[in-house]
Every structure is written in C-alpha cells, then in structure tokens.
Design a protein around this nucleic acid. Sequence first.
DNA 1: CAACGAATCAATTGGGCAATTGAATGATTG
DNA 2: CAATCATTCAATTGCCCAATTGATTCGTTG
Lengths: 228, 228
Amino acid sequence: MDEARHFQTFVYERLARLASAVAHPRRLELVDLLCQGPMTVEQLAQKSGMPFASASQHLQHLRMARLVEGERQGSYVCYRLVDDAVTCDLLAALQRAAARYDAEVRAAAQGFLQHYRDVESVDLATLRERMRQEPLLLIDVRPAEEYAAGHWPGAWSLPLEDLANRLAELPRDRAIAAYCRGPYCVLAVHAVNFLRQQGFRAFRLIEGVGEWRSRGEMIAVGDEIRQT
Amino acid sequence: MDEARHFQTFVYERLARLASAVAHPRRLELVDLLCQGPMTVEQLAQKSGMPFASASQHLQHLRMARLVEGERQGSYVCYRLVDDAVTCDLLAALQRAAARYDAEVRAAAQGFLQHYRDVESVDLATLRERMRQEPLLLIDVRPAEEYAAGHWPGAWSLPLEDLANRLAELPRDRAIAAYCRGPYCVLAVHAVNFLRQQGFRAFRLIEGVGEWRSRGEMIAVGDEIRQT
DNA sequence: CAACGAATCAATTGGGCAATTGAATGATTG
DNA sequence: CAATCATTCAATTGCCCAATTGATTCGTTG
C-alpha cells in the first residue's frame, strides 16, 4: 500500500522532469524547429538566433529527456525528434492551453496581427471547405529543407525569402493558401501580406506541419505520402 | 521584422511559463486531482499527503498561471480547473509522452503491476468491444465526491474503501470493469485484485475521467449527461 | 465578541538551473 | 600531419524557486 504511494510520487516526479525539459523558452523553440524536420546544431542555432554553445547544451538537456536524439553525419551532428507525433502533440496541447489561459498571448497575437489587417487566417476545417468549392493553390513558405523533410501533399515549396523573385510562377486566377510552422510562426503572415499587396487573392492557414503530425494527418516526404 | 522576432520570443516565454506551472511533481498531482472535480484546499492537501501551506502555495502558483481558480464557499476555498478539457488534454499529452519516452516510468509501471499478475488492464476501445458482446457492470472506485463531480454514464459508485463491505451488491454472473483516475492511479488495480480474490470476474479500465474529458467523451453529472 | 478553524502571507534557508566564457574533442580537408 | 571547423565539455557566476516555519487574515460558531 505504501508502495503504491511510492509508485505514484515516482511517476509524478518523472512527469515533472519531462515537463521541465520543455519548460524553457529556448528549448521550446528548438523543439518547435525540430517539429519541422531534422537539423544540425548549426542550423538550429542560426534559426533560433541563440549562441552556439547554448544550443548545444539545451540539446543535451533534451537528449537526456529522450525527446531528441543526435546522430553524427560527417563533421555535423544532426538532431531529430525521437517521436514526431507524440512530441508535436505535446507541443500542440501546450499551445492550445496557452491560447486558452494566457490572455497576454492572445493579446500579443492580436496586436501582432493588427499590423496586417488584410491577412485572413483560416483553420484546417475551413480550408478543406473552401477546397471543395474552388480550386486553391497551397504554398509552403518555410525554408526549402523543411519542406523537403515533410510537407502538405500537393503543396508547392515557395520559401518566403524567394517569394518576391518568383511571383511570375503564381496564378492570378486562383486563391492562394499559405502555411508555415504553426499558429505562432510569422512566415505565412508576411507571405500573405506581401501577396495581397501584389494583387493576389491569398490567405493564411493557421495550423502548421506540427499540428498535422499531432493529428495523424498525411505528410508528403519526397515522392511518398506517409502517415506519422 | 524585428518586431516579429519579439513576438515569437514572447510567445515562447509564455509557453515556457505555462509549462513551468505544471513542471513540478506536487503541482502535477494537484492538477491531476482537480481533473477529478473541484476540491477544497483541505481535501487536496489530505489526498496528496502534502503539508497544508505547501498545497496552498502551489495552488497560488497554478492560479497565477490561470490554470485553476478558487472560490470562497463559507470558510472553505474550493478550487477548480478553469477549463477541464484543455487541462486534461495537456496532462494526457504529458502522460503519453512519458509513456513513450521514459523507460523508467514504463519499468516502474510494469514492476508495480507484476505484484498484481491477475489484474487484467484494457483500454477504452477494448472495453467497448466487450460491452457489445456481453453485458458488463462498470464501477467507479474513486471517492464518492469525485464520482459526484463527474463519472462514466451508467457506472456505479463503489469507492475502494467501501468495497469490502458492499460485496453483496455485486452480481456474480457478470464481469465487472473498474476504473479510477487514470493510467497511473492505483485504486482500480487494488479493486480488481480484491474482487478476483473474492471470486468475481473483474478487470481494469486503463483510462480515467481525465482522459475522457480530453477526448470530449460524455460525462454524467448527477442526472444529466454532458459533454465537456 | 471571543474562540476556533481554514487558508494565506511573510521570511528565511538551501539547492539547482541557466548564461557565459574559454578550452577540449573529433572529424574532415588540404 | 597540420589546420580548420562543428560540436561538446568544464567551470564560474548569479538568480530564481521550493520547502519550512510562524504569524496573519477572514469567516464561522458558540
């Protein structure tokens, strides 16, 4: 009976340890980036803008918690999530909770989007609804290597940085839906804002690849379509 | 552009703050208990076996994070989750992640269950399958007040502590399924073990009320059946 | 109004975690 | 084999958080 108590406190301790692993802004950002696909320490440090040694140490921390694993490839070390679906799910649950509980997050998001009044945001269900009514073009505005690591089936890769140079490829007779890493990623917002300034019909999909993974949606990798 | 970076780091900070709120064994236990229903500080301190002032302070912490709210009722303060579904979902995601990543948790769970070899554990899907094949009796072995705050529609309330005195009420021609607070709660394990020793056909349902809430299952409260 | 009980506050202590820096490892390239 | 680059390790500092204790607030009851 007493042993039951020990078991419970042990489980709570381990759960807390796991939660602590992601209870840090930098590590959250790293995990969020890794939800997009495997990356080297260099890429992670650069994309998150944090010092090099810092990134490495936080990755060690995450590795201790078995959330990520690193594999040496040549002179680089490539990190990946041990389990995409479970981790993306955890992150998504955290984001849902924050959106529900944290008024400041909602306020910040609203404040941010107010600078881009013309940017319409829709969720996955609404997007599917619209796709039934008219043909859409879906573009993935994340960096090319993240697209390569997994993307929406049928979406084009059109990284935000290349967008201005590749406008000629885009159709003007169809509406364009842009997505990126998730609800708090700014890539798609910028893309849609720019496209609308250029006279395109465009809107933003709120969810990103992480959310789809957590929901078990289909993901395309190269030629094949998988379910994670 | 720079402002976008600020927005992102701000969001990560807030997410980390929220995660920190549950990244503590005691607070996790409190939240887990509150997933069963509203409780006073006294009840929470007693059930978790932690000092009184400690419980109060941790509850303050959770209240800062807007996860819980307290309401004065007479000389007692009753705490409840601000949003059952979202919080239970977060907790469930954390438990799934731990079950996936933490070998020690799995080992501990297995080690614990080995003392109760005869206790069969089934998940929700399997239970529904069996219910189609034969009539079952579903019993809720949590304390009566947790049953009152929300339970499986059609289940009987039969707290573990009363079980030995109320064996006469149970049928011997039907199998009995017992559930409690969740996968890491020990009440149902003890109940099933005891019932089998007494010659009943009994097994344990792994999921608890928290998991159902997170999945949007129906919950009965008094006479009405709700969806959370 | 006094006494009691529930809950919170205040203040101290100790321990652990994060940022930073510089050095060390380990693989690749010329 | 030396040089270079990516990554990790080690060690320092400072800071925040948790546990504990005792005092305080607030409502209820006699």
